[in-house]
Write a protein that binds this DNA or RNA. Structure first.
Lengths: 170, 170
DNA sequence: GCGCAAGTACTCGGATATAGAGTGTCCGAGTGGACCGGG
DNA sequence: CCCGGTCCACTCGGACACTCTATATCCGAGTACTTGCGC
C-alpha cells in the first residue's frame, strides 16, 4: 500500500502548468529541472497525464505541455488515477475457491464481503480526492503565501514559458 | 497504489480463527492448505499479526495461532496496518526544496498543501476500514449463507482444530 | 531583395535497462509428547 | 505397575533467494526555426 513517487511530481507539475496563460506551454525538461527530478521519469508521467486528457501537448521546438482542462475541472483523483492506473488497490483473488474444499460456484454471484468492505473504503478515499481540485490547492497556497512563493513561480515562468503559435487543443 | 496479496490471506485467516473456541488453536500449515496458498508466505503474515498483538501463538507440537482479541475489537484496519505497515501511502518528498531555486525553510513549518489533501483522503480510507470489524464480516456472511459455508468451515475446523493446554494468552 | 527548400535542433513518444520491494523458500530455536529404562 | 529421563517430531521465528513492478534511461518520429540557394 504505497503510492508511486511520480504522483507527487505529477501534481506539482499540473499545479505549475495551471499558472500559465492560454497558448503558453512549458517543456518537460524545464519542469524537471525546477523540481529537481529525473527529466525522463517525469516525462513518463506527463505522457500518462496527456493520454488521460488532463494535459495537452505541442510537439516540436518551442513545444511543451499545457492544461487541457481548467484547474477547476481537474481533481487530485484525476491525476492520481492517470499516474497509478484506474484499478482498485485491493484486488480480491477469491481465495475461497482455492484449497481442497472450494466454495461452490453459486456464491460468487455476490462479491466477497471482504472485497466489498475494502472497496467501500477505497470509494471513500477517492471521493475525498475528487473533492479537491487544482484550483483549490492553488487558492490554499496563495492564502498562506506572503509573496515569496508567487515570486518564485513567476521567476521560473518568466524564464521558461513559451508561447505556442498553435491554438490550445487536446 | 496497490495492496499486498497477503492482506487478503490475512483477513481470511483471522476470520477463520474467529470461529474457534477459547483454548483452541489452528496451525499455519492448516490455514495455508485450506486457503490454497503458500504456507511459508502465509506464515510470514501471521507472524506480523502476532507482533501486532492481533494473534497469539502457542509454540511446540499441537501449537498454532489463535485470536488475542475478541472479533468485535479487531477491525479491518488493524489487519491491513499489521500486514502493510503503518506508514501512509502518500509520502511527501517535499520536492519544493529541490531544484535550483528551493522554497525557503520557513515554509516547511506547515505541511505541504498537497500532502495535507492526500493525508485527509487516507484518513477517510482508514476510518472506513476501522468501522468494519471481523465480527461484522462474519455476521454478514452468516446472513447470506444457507448453511453451505458454515458446514464447510465446521468440517475444516473439526479436522484441524487443536486444543491447547495453555490458557489463552498473548 | 524575396521566396522556397533542405538541413538542423529541439520537442514529445514509446521501447529498453536497472533497483528495490513484494513474493516465496529455507533452516534454526523451542516445546510438548512419546518412548524407554529403572525403581 | 509407576516414575523419571531422554529422544524425537512438530511448531513458530527469523534469515535467505527469486520475481515482478516502479524507477531511471535511451533512442526514434515529428515539427518549427534557420540557413543557404535560386530567382
Amino acid at each position: 500500500m504505497k503510492l508511486s513517487e511520480g504522483v507527487e511530481q505529477a501534481i506539482h507539475s499540473v499545479a505549475m502548468l495551471a499558472s500559465l496563460e492560454a497558448d503558453q506551454v512549458l517543456s518537460a525538461a524545464a519542469l524537471a529541472e525546477f523540481h529537481g527530478v529525473s527529466p525522463s521519469y517525469l516525462l513518463k508521467h506527463l505522457q500518462a497525464l496527456s493520454r488521460s486528457g488532463i494535459l495537452g501537448t505541442v510537439p516540436g521546438p518551442k513545444g511543451g505541455y499545457h492544461l487541457a482542462q481548467t484547474p477547476e475541472d481537474i481533481s487530485l483523483l484525476d491525476v492520481v488515477l492517470a499516474v497509478e492506473g484506474p484499478e482498485p488497490a485491493f484486488r480480491c483473488k477469491e481465495i475461497r475457491r482455492n484449497g481442497p474444499n472450494p466454495v461452490p460456484e453459486g456464491f460468487f454471484k455476490a462479491p466477497c464481503q471482504i472485497n466489498a468492505a475494502m472497496l467501500r473504503a477505497e470509494r471513500s478515499y477517492r471521493a475525498e480526492l475528487r473533492k479537491v481540485t487544482i484550483a483549490h490547492l492553488l487558492a490554499e497556497v496563495r492564502e498562506d503565501d506572503d509573496g515569496t512563493l508567487a515570486a518564485r513561480s513567476c521567476a521560473f515562468l518568466d524564464a521558461n514559458v513559451r508561447i505556442s503559435n498553435q491554438s490550445r487543443q487536446h
